[in-house]
Design a protein around this nucleic acid. Sequence first.
DNA 1: TCGACAAAAAGTGTATGCAATTTTTGTGTC
DNA 2: GACACAAAAATTGCATACACTTTTTGTCGA
Lengths: 230, 230
Amino acid sequence: MAGMDTPASTTEVIVESLTRAVVEHRLLPGTKLAEQKLADHFGVSRTLVRQALFQLSQNRLIRLEPARGAFVATPSVDEARQVFAVRRMLEIATVRAFVAASTPAKIRALKKHMEAERKAMLGQNVSLRTELLGDFHVRIAQLMGNEVLAQILGELISRCALITLMYQTSTAAVHSHEEHEGIFNALVAGDEASAVRLMQEHLDNVEAGLMFDRDVPSNDLSMALTAPNA
Amino acid sequence: MAGMDTPASTTEVIVESLTRAVVEHRLLPGTKLAEQKLADHFGVSRTLVRQALFQLSQNRLIRLEPARGAFVATPSVDEARQVFAVRRMLEIATVRAFVAASTPAKIRALKKHMEAERKAMLGQNVSLRTELLGDFHVRIAQLMGNEVLAQILGELISRCALITLMYQTSTAAVHSHEEHEGIFNALVAGDEASAVRLMQEHLDNVEAGLMFDRDVPSNDLSMALTAPNA
DNA sequence: TCGACAAAAAGTGTATGCAATTTTTGTGTC
DNA sequence: GACACAAAAATTGCATACACTTTTTGTCGA
């Protein structure tokens, strides 16, 4: 994910690993995360696992039930709407600010991201695709030089990955990417009105593409973790 | 603080206690928070203290230095500007949304807050005053029924309390309150343009009232904690 | 008197142990 | 066969123990 610094601490490694597993849909909502099993998997004691689970619960990627354990979060429809509402507030304002403070260097950096995104769309790596689609939004904030904003957006987008998993009807990935292209072009052209409108429509589309009445299956733990990540 | 549910868990008690101490300026930036001392103070083991410190570090109220310990955060000028920038994005959009979805019940609830704020301005309780001034902003978000937004705003405002402590020139508390009254009146009147403008000006004023070149003294730990909180 | 170095103290990072709670398993009854 | 209940197993919550790092203290020599 964008803005993931070097994970020096052991706890951070566990957090990142679990975050990827959740965001990339290898760990499904409702899955129980037993401390000892995770500890065995990562070769550490429960202490570090508990720290990681605690952090993830603050990011709302998992929920901790007292004396019962940790479970991958199952965001409600209401929460989903709230998350999207906040994203709209932040991202529309961010696009405005980006146009106002646009420089060739920033455009270049964003162009570089677009190329990576474009390439990923052609490939088979679904995880990478999901990651880059999210990063597009974070990157714009980062280019504004506002790390506070970038971090908040990053967390909201992680939550959206969970929401998408729970409620998304069909794979709208390609569609999202096309909309990113449109936003990018408007940013390059310095066309604030279009950029704002396209971003608004993009977020509306993503939210509208959700189907708020579904059940999701649960999942096995060790299988999900022995996947293509660390 | 607004949105502080019943602090059932022991960790939450510690987090809230330390948060209040930091936000109410009883613990000054840079102060070291030794785990054992905190554990003794709260009558628990270091385990719980570590969890609390960990959470506070995510809220950016303290910073954890590997193998060196926890210190009350000393936000940089740059960070301060970023926090205010995000607040502007969120709060202006929130005011807009509030006007659009205003109801008599919401107005009543906000009016109730204004009365509490007004009363606190007359009293001597500085902590209460600070708390209510921050709550004004969170309350508007809560009344919109967006808990996600309210929580993010709450965290940003806590960080602002730290920033204010570090950089605020004089006590602008009364001035802030007067501006709140103005925003409130515009909200009651359903005057979106004025409400947005006043909120923008209010945040600009708070930020402009900061003086970005000062040192702050450090502080004693046990004294700060044996203050009027739990 | 000051600085460098070494020993001691204090403090953090992680693992382990134990009480308490929850979940599972097993048994008997209807 | 389904349900209720009790014993056993598994799991969580918290405290404690210990290795390792940082900070402080104390001593010596210039």
